[in-house]
């Protein structure tokens, strides 16, 4: 039996750029075209200058680990065979406090305390869940998956 994928992104004009970029293995984050502020998650207005002129822009894909938690309980069929896995909040280098939520991959789940170090340098990578559903993930810099 095929395991159902996680719920797919809705057909949402505000976030299409993000998922289309992910399919090209690029990380794009919404940015205000007036003042340059990055905004995540995408919104129709810039909270810094109230401009409505916003667009996705490619970012470096570099980040630092802000916090992590290792999930042991699946809350969806897709993850039943995938526990334990690490959910992380990372800070993208483009802007202070620009947080992005993802999984931390490329680490040994059995040795998570030693391998997931707060503040460590991370880089983006891309994971194909199937059916063209590609999600940006982060891994320690230099780790080959």
């Amino acid at each position: 039996m095929d395991t159902p994928l996680p719920p797919a992104p809705p057909d949402d004009p505000l976030t299409t750029f993000f998922w289309e970029a992910a399919r090209r293995h690029e990380l794009h984050i919404q940015r205000c075209q007036s003042c340059g502020t990055y905004i995540h998650m995408p919104r129709p207005i810039c909270r810094n200058c109230q401009s409505f002129d916003l667009a996705g822009e490619q970012v470096s894909g570099r980040a630092t680990l802000y916090s992590w938690t290792q999930t042991y309980k699946p809350f969806h069929p897709y993850f039943v065979e995938r526990v334990p896995y690490v959910i992380a909040t990372v800070t993208l280098v483009e802007q202070p406090g620009l947080q992005f939520m993802c999984n931390l991959i490329g680490i040994d789940q059995a040795n998570v305390d030693a391998e997931a170090r707060m503040g460590m340098d991370l880089e983006v990578t891309f994971q194909d869940l199937g059916d063209g559903y590609v999600v940006p993930q982060f891994k320690p810099v230099g780790v080959v998956l």
């Binding site: 996680p6 719920p7 992104p9 809705p10 949402d12 505000l14 976030t15 995540h40 998650m41 999930t71 699946p74 809350f75 969806h76 897709y78 993850f79 995938r82 896995y85 959910i87 939520m101 993802c102 999984n103 869940l129 559903y133 999600v135 993930q137």
Partner: peptide
């Protein structure tokens, strides 16, 4: 709308 940035990561 925001859940699209959580669910694929197993964050429910």
């Amino acid at each position: 709308v925001d859940a699209q940035f959580r669910w694929p990561y197993g964050n429910f």
